[in-house]
Design a protein around this nucleic acid. Structure first.
Lengths: 352, 352
DNA sequence: ATTAGCACTCAACAAGATGGAGTGCTAATA
DNA sequence: TATTAGCACTCCATCTTGTTGAGTGCTAAT
C-alpha cells in the first residue's frame, strides 16, 4: 500500500469502502468507531492493527478525526462529503419501495395551496425524522389566470391576482382620482386578457409598452399604468414552511451541546434557511450542504439536504431537510429527491 | 396564630404577603426559598424558625411544596394561582410606562393582515422573553366588503371574499352547469349587495330565504344557492401564529427536563394551543392557565397567559404567552393585556 | 406566639479509584 | 512490502467516597 504523506490523493478502493463503512457506522451508532470493534463487527479479514494503519491514513487525509486521543474515529466534514458523494453516485433513486403515499385526492380539493405545502413539509419531517423546510413557488413564475380589481374605501383599490394553481395574491393600491366600479371591471377584463396564460416574469418587460399603445382600456391611462406597475411589481416573497423542529430535540448530540440553541434561533431567524433554499433553486437536482459548508457563523454540526422543484420546466421552489451533520443521508437524500418530484408533478398538473 | 389542620382556609394577611413574596422570590431566582435566607434577604422582623412555621402551614395548605426533604420551598400550582390572582386584583394595567411601540404606520400599509399578526406575535415574544401565540380573527365575525366570483376551469368557480380588514378568503366550488363570466359578474354584484356591511354570522340564517324570494339574481337559482351556501359555510379556520420558541430553550429548567421536548411537540401539534385560545376567546379579559390547569397529558410545568381581542365589540380572536409555570407573571400579564388592547384598537380602526 | 438550639437530611460538588476501549509504535511474520 | 501481534500508554466514563452548606423538624425556653 502506498501511503502518501500528502493530504490530497485518490483513495484506494479498499480505503474508500472502509471509509464509507466507518461513516455509516458512525451515522447509525453515533459513537466514535474504534479499530478493534469495527473489524469485529463487520467480520473484516484484517486485524485491528491493519485497520489502525488505514484509519491513520484516512486521518492524515482528513477524512476522519479523533474527538480526543485514544478515542475512536469520527468523520470530518470531508468524510461526510465523500460518503454522500458516493451515495449520490450509486443510488438510483428508484421510488419503487417507498411507502410514502401522498393523499393527492385530499390535497387537490384544497384551494389554499399553502395547506398542501404544509402537508408536504409535515410528511417530509415525519418520514425523515429531522426538520423539513420548504419554499413556496416563486410567484412571478406561475401562470396568471385572472386579474380582479375591487374598489375599497376612498381612493384605494384592492388588486387580486389569481394563478392557475389557484393561489390568490392581493395588493393594495392607492389611486389619485375616483373611478367607477364598472370601469374597473372593464380594466380587469383587459388586464386579464393581457396577462392570462403568461407568467409575470414573461410579460413584465412588455406590458407597459403594450398598454401605452392601447387606445381604450376602460380607465384613465395614468391609473392603468399605476395598476399595471403593481401587477408586475415584486410580489410577495415565497413563504417558508418549517416542520418537525421537535425531531431535532430527540437527537442526543444536539441536546447536549448548545448547538440546539443556535439551530433553533436559525430556524426563527429564517433568512438563513431562505438563502440556502434560494441557492438550491438556482439549479436542478439534489444539493447537500455538510457542516461548515453552511457558511453561517452560528451553525455548527448541521447539514442540509435540499432539492428544487418545478412547474412545467421552470424551477420555482425548493424543499429540503435540516438535521445534524451526522444525518442518515442514505435515507434522507432519496426522500428529499422523491419529495421534490412529487411536488413538481403536483404543481405541474395543477397549473395545466 | 390559629393554625388549622384543614387544607382549606383563608390566609391571614401576613401569610398572604409572605406567600406572595416567596412566589416572587422563586420566580425571579429559580431556586427553592429557604427560611433563613428569605427572612434575611427581605429583612423581616421574624426569625427563621417562625418563618419555618409559617412555611410549614403554607405547605399544609398546599400553596408550597419541597422538591425534596431538607430543601427550601417552591410554589405549587395553587401557590402560583394565588400569586397571579392577587396580581390581577392589584394591578391597574396602566400602560403609561410601557415602552413598546408598535409601528402602526408600517403596519397599516400592509394588505396581508397576516403580516400584522406576525409582527405583533414577534413583538410579544420579544418583550415577554417567552413564546407568543396568536389566533387570527374569526372570519365569520368580520364584516364583508365584497364578493368576487371567478370562473376557473371546467365547472369550477373560485369564490373570493374580501372583508373590510382587507383579508381575502378564497374557496373553490364545483358547479353542475356552465355559466358565463358576465352572469357570474352579475351574481357577484348581487351577493355583494346582500352581504356587504354584514358579518357572515349575521346573515347566514337569512340569506337563503332572501335568495329564494329573489326573482332574478343573474344566474341559475340552484347554482346561486350552492354558491351562497359556500359563502356562509364554515370558513377557513383562524390561523395560529407562533413566535419565540427559541426563548423557551434559554430557560434552564426547561432544557434540563424533557419538558422542553413535550412543549415543543405541543407547539408543533398546535391544536392544543388552538383549543386553549379558543376558550380564551369565549370571554373578555385576561385568562391564566397555570401548570396542571392546562389539561393536557404532555404538558408539564407550563403556563399560559392569554386574552381575547375584539373588532368593535365582538370577540374575534385571542393572543397569549406560553412559558414555564415559573413565569414572570407580573410582567407578562399586563403585557398580554396591553397587546390585546392594541390589536383590538388596530382591527377596529381598520374595519371602519 | 415566637425564638434559640440542636440533630438530622440531602443535593451538589470535588476528589480519587477503576476499568475498558482506544491508540501509536516496534518488531516479527508471510 | 503489507500485515500482524504485542505492549505501553492515554483518556473517558463510571463509580465511590467525603465534605460542605443550606435547609428542615422538633423541643424547650422565652
Amino acid at each position: 500500500m502506498s501511503r502518501g504523506i500528502t493530504k490530497e490523493r485518490v483513495l484506494e478502493e479498499r480505503e474508500a469502502s472502509i471509509l464509507q463503512a466507518i461513516v455509516y457506522e458512525y451515522i447509525t451508532k453515533g459513537k466514535p468507531v474504534g479499530s478493534r470493534s469495527f473489524v469485529h463487527k463487520y467480520s473484516l479479514a484484517v486485524s485491528p492493527a491493519t485497520m489502525r494503519n488505514i484509519m491513520y491514513d484516512l486521518e492524515s487525509l482528513e477524512y476522519l478525526k479523533q474527538p480526543h486521543t485514544s478515542a475512536g474515529r469520527i468523520p470530518t466534514d470531508k468524510g461526510y462529503r465523500f460518503y454522500v458523494d458516493s451515495l449520490l453516485d450509486t443510488y438510483d433513486f428508484s421510488l419503487k419501495d417507498r411507502e410514502i403515499s401522498i393523499k393527492e385526492e385530499a390535497i387537490k380539493r384544497e384551494v389554499q395551496l399553502d395547506k398542501i405545502f404544509s402537508v408536504i413539509t409535515k410528511m417530509l419531517s415525519t418520514e425523515s425524522h429531522y426538520a423539513a423546510v420548504m419554499l413556496t413557488p416563486r410567484f412571478d413564475f406561475t401562470v396568471v389566470k385572472r386579474v380582479v380589481l375591487v374598489p375599497m374605501d376612498n381612493n384605494e383599490i384592492l388588486f387580486i391576482l389569481v394563478t392557475r394553481t389557484g393561489v390568490v395574491e392581493t395588493k393594495k393600491v392607492m389611486v389619485s382620482s375616483n373611478v367607477t366600479q364598472d370601469d374597473l371591471h372593464n380594466f380587469s377584463k383587459y388586464l386579464t386578457g393581457e396577462l392570462c396564460g403568461y407568467a409575470i416574469n414573461e410579460i413584465k418587460d412588455t406590458i407597459f409598452e403594450r398598454l401605452r399603445k392601447e387606445k381604450e382600456v376602460g380607465i384613465n391611462k395614468e391609473m392603468a399604468l399605476d395598476i399595471a406597475q403593481l401587477a408586475v411589481s415584486e410580489s410577495e416573497e415565497p413563504r417558508l414552511h418549517i416542520d418537525g423542529i421537535e425531531n431535532l430535540l430527540k437527537i442526543p448530540e444536539m441536546v447536549e451541546a448548545d448547538r440546539l440553541h443556535s439551530l433553533l434561533s436559525i430556524i426563527e431567524e429564517n433568512n438563513i434557511i431562505r438563502r440556502i433554499l434560494m441557492r438550491t433553486l438556482e439549479s436542478e437536482g439534489i444539493r447537500t450542504l455538510i457542516g461548515e459548508e453552511i457558511e453561517e457563523e452560528h451553525v455548527r454540526g448541521c447539514s442540509m439536504v435540499s432539492t428544487s422543484y418545478k412547474i412545467g420546466n421552470k424551477l420555482v421552489g425548493a424543499v429540503g431537510v435540516l438535521g445534524p451533520t451526522r444525518m442518515d443521508y442514505e435515507k434522507v437524500v432519496p426522500l428529499v429527491d422523491y419529495t421534490g418530484r412529487i411536488v413538481t408533478e403536483l404543481l405541474t398538473k395543477m397549473s395545466k
